[in-house]
Simulated assay, not measured.
Amino acid sequence: MESFNQYLDTVISFRKELHRHPEVSGKEVATANRIVSFLKQFPPDEMITAIGGTGIIAAYNGEKPGKTVLFRCELDALPIEEINNFEHRSVHKAVSHKCGHDGHMAILCGLAIKLHLKRPDTGAVFLLFQPSEEDGSGAQKVLSDTKFKSINPDYVFALHNLPAYPKNQIVVKNNTFTCAVNSIIIKLKGITAHAAEPEKGINPAQAIAAILSAYNKYSQPDSKKPKYCIITPVHIRMGKKAYGVSAGAGEIHFTVRSDSSVEMKNIAGYLEEKARSIADEYKLGISIKWVQTFEANENNSTAVDLVRVAANSNCLALLEKKTPFSWGEDFGLFTQKYKGAMFGIGIGKEKPALHNPDYDFEDEILQTGISIFHHISKQITDADKFNYRT
């Protein structure tokens, strides 16, 4: 039987090719085509394309019926100008892979090679290349696609690379792994007036200040305490650069983070009520819109145990994280619907942070990600050999 090791350089080269040609959420057409071309070299038993937009599912089936597992990665990049000068830097201005999705895709492609060389004994393994994770819309698009209805996996898994953690360290956590994240846009409508006679208009400045103050007081950023909640102002606009005019309209945007999707609903209710109350106090019209919603990623304890077993079997350091990551991940929609887990792999303590313009994925963890995913798949589809109850 062929050894996977001879293909590792192929996976690394492909990761760099993906890095050179990034595409933002919803525009991942060329990226998807590259993935399809790569997979055709290691043909799955079935390939579904254009799922949830540009998504792809590759299925590797066992000889007998059994449990099924889905592994998910992300196709999209970010609207960030890359400042790296290495050979595989982005060829597209102001677009780059600064979250490591190129590496996540390469890991799934490496897993595809392993599954092609040796099919599962039973059941099936599905590889999902998901679009539009960064804007929070991709998971819902995939799950709502009629082409996904036939998949119905017993387990779902995803990973994320982690700067500031030791290289190849596996980071796990039961229950909430990543926070619920929601963004609110508040638009205020008053009356424009001459700046010399502001009393003849209704300026939104005081209301904006009151909303900022109220939300700041409500924020509870200590993840070790109850009612954990981070409320961050990200954009404010009011009036125009016209010094003779008292502004008659404005808007303010916040991102909101909680370690519970249920609690997020309570927070959202409070924030809306408070904003409307302040708008009424200052006699302003108001409209509120929520965007880029990420459900909390709730890890199933049995699924996390499968990760732990895979890490220990591969002699990898394991960190049990005490508190959730504060960033959002739309994989939370999958873990709401199916038993599953997301885990992290450290890429090095000195690596630039995610979304930084000088970030790059660490190729040395590709083998680790592939091995962990593959071991998880074997525990589920070859469960009798592993004597592990799933």
Results as ranks from 00 to 15, higher is better:
361 F>R: 04
322 K>D: 12
321 K>R: 14
265 K>Q: 15
338 Y>V: 09
352 P>T: 14
358 D>T: 12
269 G>I: 09
361 F>T: 01
334 F>N: 04
250 G>T: 09
292 Q>G: 02
355 H>F: 04
358 D>F: 08
354 L>A: 08
328 G>T: 06
330 D>F: 04
283 K>W: 04
244 G>P: 02
249 A>V: 03
288 I>G: 02
302 T>A: 11
352 P>R: 13
284 L>N: 03
357 P>G: 06
360 D>F: 06
282 Y>G: 02
365 I>M: 05
307 V>H: 04
352 P>E: 12
334 F>D: 00
348 G>D: 03
343 F>W: 10
243 Y>K: 08
343 F>V: 07
308 R>C: 12
301 S>P: 03
247 A>C: 05
333 L>M: 12
309 V>Y: 11
246 S>T: 12
367 Q>D: 07
301 S>V: 10
342 M>D: 00
341 A>C: 10
265 K>G: 02
257 R>W: 00
248 G>F: 09
301 S>F: 00
288 I>R: 05
243 Y>V: 11
265 K>R: 13
313 S>Y: 11
291 V>K: 14
321 K>E: 09
364 E>D: 15
263 E>F: 15
264 M>Y: 03
323 T>K: 11
250 G>W: 03
281 E>Q: 15
256 V>F: 06
362 E>L: 07
365 I>E: 03
265 K>L: 13
344 G>K: 08
301 S>E: 10
299 N>R: 02
345 I>P: 02
251 E>I: 00
291 V>R: 14
303 A>V: 11
286 I>P: 00
344 G>N: 05
288 I>W: 03
309 V>K: 13
316 L>H: 09
305 D>S: 15
252 I>G: 01
341 A>N: 03
350 E>R: 12
345 I>L: 13
344 G>L: 09
351 K>P: 00
295 E>S: 14
363 D>P: 10
267 I>S: 08
254 F>T: 09
357 P>S: 15
352 P>Y: 12
